[in-house]
């Protein structure tokens, strides 16, 4: 299995330096990861570094809390696309979901999708903050708002992806939306389990470890 093409090679830390972005992009090219996933201020640099490769640039929006105004998220998403981002990973407004204000949750996502035209939009629903019913509701809203992916987690909350949640999202999505599992996926076997459960993409900062383990396992 070509697991490398499932991987969004991720570096989302407040201390990320330009040097870190150089390293991340070099690694993504070398291992032919699907994309690099970075905070939006580094999109221009990453785009430049990846210009001769097929590696895509994925930028976060409203990350990691999701509680900024819709206008601010739209501004960030638009700017990221202008700067060269190929995909947007936005955080859902979790507080609105918790307030049962589903129209606002929908509008927040739809406004961003409209602002970025046909670019893939992933919506991070932060499963660790949601009940089962809220996960299902969030999935339905993402489908209605024409998001392309549901993404499980930011990696900044109390916990990351779970197989149970991915299976539940898969069951709810019925093929209408893809799934990105992220947060705490650090080895090959775990990554494989997520893919078997329905994940179409894996967000991880352990991409190199995952593929090197995979190479060893497949060779043995």
């Amino acid at each position: 299995m070509k697991i490398n093409s499932y991987i969004d090679h991720t570096l989302l830390s407040p201390t990320t330096s330009k040097k870190d972005i150089y390293t991340l992009c070099e690694e993504a090219i070398e291992h032919r990861f699907f994309s690099v996933c970075i905070n939006s201020s580094y999109v221009p640099l990453a785009k430049q570094l990846l210009s001769r490769s097929n590696v895509k640039v994925c930028a976060t929006v409203g990350f990691p809390l999701g509680a900024m105004s819709t206008e601010a998220k739209v501004s960030e998403a638009k700017k990221a696309i202008e700067d060269g981002a190929d995909e947007i990973d936005m955080v859902m407004n979790i507080g609105m979901m918790k307030s049962n204000n589903f129209v606002s949750v929908y509008k927040d996502i739809r406004d961003i999708k409209l602002a970025i035209n046909n670019k893939p939009l992933k919506v991070i629903i932060e499963i660790s903050e949601l009940s089962k019913n809220e996960i299902i509701k969030a999935c339905q809203i993402c489908i209605d708002a024409k998001a392309d992916f549901i993404k499980t987690s930011t990696g900044f909350s109390k916990s990351g992806a779970t197989l149970t949640a991915v299976k539940m999202i898969k069951k709810t999505a019925k093929g209408k939306i893809k799934i990105k599992a992220s947060g705490g996926i650090k080895d090959y076997e775990t990554a494989l389990k997520y893919i078997e459960s329905g994940a179409d993409r894996i967000g991880t900062s352990s991409g190199i470890n995952i593929i090197s383990e995979g190479t060893i396992l497949e060779a043995s």
């Binding site: 407040p14 939006s40 201020s41 999109v43 990691p64 601010a72 700017k79």
Partner: peptide
């Protein structure tokens, strides 16, 4: 809380 969105944003 990360501080690494673009200045324009």
């Amino acid at each position: 809380p990360l501080g690494n969105t673009p200045t324009a944003v």
